[in-house]
Amino acid sequence: MRFNYKFQHILTLKEREKEETLTLYDESVRQFENAAKKLYDLLKKKEVLEQFQSDKLETGYSIQKIRHNQLFINNLEETIDFWQKKVLATRNEMRYWEGKLLESNIEVKKYEKMKDKSYEYFQQWINTNENNQMDEIAAIQFQHRKGN
């Protein structure tokens, strides 16, 4: 006799949902990492540029070049502000998918646990059935021997 789990279709569906959620989570992690790397690169660039400007101010720097540098730093700060918001948004999205993945894992584990319990019950039922059949066979053999 073969074990047939009555909720197998649901378990398969939940596992598929979990895999899809994992894919979306991995994609959100990748987007977060890319945005964070871009932000880090921009902050590093700003730091280097400010250090360069500071060094040049000590040694002498034309007003035109100072204005040009300051304009560039202001534009860089706007870009940094954009990427900070982008990092925050991608972090929130990553956390959202992380929560969904956790929920999916819990759902799959519930159905797997139910399947395990159902299988244990099935095994007990098979063992009880086999024992009963063995008892019947032994009783029949005993009756045949007694009758002879």
Rank of each mutant, 00 (worst) to 15 (best):
Q53T: 07
V48F: 02
V29T: 10
N69E: 10
L22T: 14
L42Q: 03
L13A: 15
K65T: 06
G60D: 03
T59N: 07
K45P: 00
V29W: 02
Y61E: 12
Q133R: 10
D41Q: 05
R95D: 14
R30M: 10
I140L: 09
D116V: 04
L24H: 14
N129Q: 11
G60Y: 02
V48Y: 08
Q64K: 13
A89F: 08
L76G: 01
Y96C: 07
Y61F: 08
K85D: 15
W83Q: 02
S28I: 01
T23M: 14
R145V: 05
E50D: 09
S118V: 00
E120S: 10
R2F: 13
T128L: 11
I126P: 03
E77F: 01
D135W: 01
V87A: 02
H68K: 12
K44S: 09
D26Q: 15
N148V: 01
I137W: 08
Y96F: 15
N34Y: 09
N148T: 03
L49N: 04
E20T: 13
Y121W: 08
E20Y: 13
R30N: 09
Y121A: 09
R2P: 14
Y119M: 02
K46V: 01
K38E: 13
E112F: 01
D41L: 02
I10M: 11
H9Y: 12
Y111L: 12
F52H: 02
G147R: 07
D55T: 04
F82I: 08
K110D: 07
L102F: 13
I10W: 14
D26A: 11
L24D: 15
T90M: 13
Q70W: 06
S28G: 01
N74V: 11
L43C: 06
K85Q: 15
T23S: 14
R30E: 06
E130M: 07
F82T: 13
K86G: 11
